[in-house]
Design a protein around this nucleic acid. Sequence first.
DNA 1: CTAATGATGTCCT
DNA 2: GGACATCATTAGA
Length: 233
Amino acid sequence: MTPPHRGSGGAAQGRPPPTVDRRLLAANPLTAASTLLGALLVRTGLGDQPETIVGRIVEVEAYGGQEDRASHARMGPTARNAPMFGPPGHAYVYLVYGMHTCLNVVAGPEASASAVLIRAVEPLEGMAAMRHARALSRTPGQHVPDARVAAGPGLVGAAFGIGRDLNGVDLCRAGSTLRLARDDIACSPFDVLQGPRIGIAYAGEPAVSLPWRLGIAGSPSLSKPFPRPGDIP
DNA sequence: CTAATGATGTCCT
DNA sequence: GGACATCATTAGA
């Protein structure tokens, strides 16, 4: 019954946690996604709020390059997806539905144009700053519980104050205002949920059926439940 | 509880 | 002009 998240000590306090090794992200996107699951997302340098925001990545989706009909890279390089064709470990930030920003971590070898979408984060530190950032981005959620403040791709963007200005930022560099960190101390082992990606019905088969959405079992911060093995056809 | 809907801006045809 | 890797709110069973 012990939750797999938030282990013993508050490891996120004190010295800044170590960055994520860029080479671990240079593998195929599904492997990179698996690496990012359980890692920390760290936000600093919010103008008005001195607080640092730290959360644990609990849900991700892998996207391939041109061969993946669900990927933004499917049309080849464009102005929007340019960061996907760059080196791994950098941010690809884009606007969906005219109002929400989503964060991707570029993956794979350079120019492979694959990426990992950060779909949900479990808050660890900086609750007040997260809610403040959400209010600024007109995503009120005044009554949502702490665990659900970043429980969706658009909500991750809102709660971490991620705007297009962060497009292309190096998430593996310690000095970046948005960065990834390892969580070797506080992160207990967890079970990985797997399912089809969300919101890509337009892509058709085989893309719609690939189980490239990964989540941490038991986390209260998943964007939505994963289909169970014996679920509706 | 599920389903429908409006908000909103940018990219690509 | 159409479609979109979404969210909050409202309407309905």
